[in-house]
Amino acid sequence: TIEDAIKKLLKLAQKGQPYTFGDFTVTSEEEAKKLAKWLKKQL
C-alpha cells in the first residue's frame, strides 16, 4: 500500500539512503516527509 511505501521511505531516509519512488529521488528525511505529505494528498 501507499502507507507501507511511506513507512519504508521514511526508514530509508533516516539511514541516509537515497530512495527512488516513481519520478522522485529522496535523499533526506526532510524530502521524504514532503513526499509523504504529497502522497497522502493523492489518496
Rank of each mutant, 00 (worst) to 15 (best):
T1S: 08
T1V: 06
T1H: 06
T1L: 11
T1F: 09
T1G: 04
I2H: 02
I2Q: 02
I2F: 09
I2D: 02
I2M: 07
I2Y: 12
I2C: 14
E3M: 13
E3W: 15
E3L: 13
E3H: 12
E3Y: 13
E3Q: 13
E3G: 07
E3T: 10
D4R: 13
D4Q: 13
D4V: 02
D4H: 13
D4I: 07
D4S: 11
D4W: 10
A5H: 11
A5Y: 14
A5D: 03
A5S: 01
A5N: 01
A5T: 09
A5F: 15
A5G: 02
I6A: 01
I6R: 00
I6K: 00
I6V: 02
I6W: 05
K7P: 00
K7G: 05
K7H: 09
K7V: 10
K7C: 14
K8S: 04
K8W: 14
K8G: 05
K8Y: 10
K8D: 06
K8M: 13
K8P: 00
L9R: 00
L9M: 10
L9V: 03
L9Q: 00
L9F: 07
L9I: 09
L10F: 05
L10I: 10
L10K: 03
L10C: 12
L10E: 04
L10A: 02
K11D: 14
K11H: 12
K11G: 12
K11V: 11
K11Y: 14
K11A: 14
K11L: 13
L12F: 11
L12H: 09
L12S: 06
L12N: 05
L12V: 04
L12K: 06
L12Y: 12
A13E: 03
A13R: 04
A13G: 04
A13Y: 05
A13P: 06
A13C: 15
Q14I: 09
Q14C: 14
Q14Y: 08
K15F: 12
K15G: 08
K15S: 12
K15Y: 11
G16K: 02
G16Q: 03
G16S: 04
G16N: 07
G16I: 11
G16H: 05
Q17F: 15
Q17R: 02
Q17S: 03
Q17E: 13
Q17M: 15
Q17C: 15
Q17N: 04
P18R: 05
P18D: 04
P18F: 06
Y19Q: 07
Y19H: 03
Y19A: 11
Y19R: 01
Y19S: 05
Y19W: 12
Y19I: 14
T20W: 10
T20V: 09
T20Q: 07
T20G: 01
T20F: 11
T20M: 08
T20P: 14
T20S: 03
F21A: 02
F21N: 02
F21M: 04
F21T: 03
F21K: 00
F21E: 02
G22R: 03
G22P: 05
G22Y: 14
G22K: 05
G22N: 11
G22I: 12
D23R: 02
D23P: 13
D23T: 10
D23K: 07
D23H: 08
D23Y: 14
F24Y: 05
F24G: 02
F24K: 01
F24W: 13
F24Q: 12
F24S: 02
F24E: 03
F24D: 04
F24I: 10
T25E: 05
T25W: 11
V26G: 02
V26I: 11
V26P: 04
V26S: 03
V26N: 06
V26W: 05
T27G: 05
T27N: 07
T27K: 04
T27I: 08
T27V: 08
T27S: 07
T27D: 09
T27F: 12
S28R: 01
S28K: 02
S28P: 02
S28D: 05
S28C: 09
E29W: 12
E29R: 08
E29M: 15
E29Q: 07
E29Y: 15
E30D: 11
E30M: 10
E30H: 08
E30G: 05
E31C: 12
E31Y: 08
E31S: 11
E31A: 08
E31G: 03
E31W: 11
E31R: 02
A32Y: 07
A32T: 03
A32S: 03
K33H: 10
K33S: 05
K33R: 12
K33T: 05
K33M: 10
K33F: 08
K33W: 13
K33I: 13
K34I: 07
K34C: 15
K34Y: 06
K34H: 09
K34N: 04
L35E: 00
L35K: 00
L35I: 07
L35V: 04
L35H: 00
L35Y: 01
A36I: 14
A36S: 05
A36H: 07
A36V: 14
A36T: 05
A36L: 14
A36K: 03
K37F: 11
K37W: 11
K37V: 11
K37M: 12
K37Q: 10
K37H: 11
K37S: 11
K37T: 11
W38N: 01
W38M: 05
W38R: 01
L39D: 00
L39I: 08
L39C: 00
L39H: 00
L39T: 00
L39Y: 02
L39Q: 00
L39A: 01
L39K: 00
L39W: 04
K40E: 12
K40I: 15
K40M: 14
K40W: 14
K40L: 14
K40S: 11
K40Y: 14
K40H: 11
K40A: 09
K40P: 01
K41M: 11
K41V: 06
K41H: 10
K41W: 12
K41R: 03
K41E: 14
Q42R: 07
Q42N: 04
Q42S: 04
Q42V: 13
Q42Y: 06
Q42T: 09
Q42F: 10
Q42P: 01
L43C: 12
L43W: 09
L43H: 07
L43I: 06
L43K: 04
L43G: 03
L43N: 03
L43M: 06
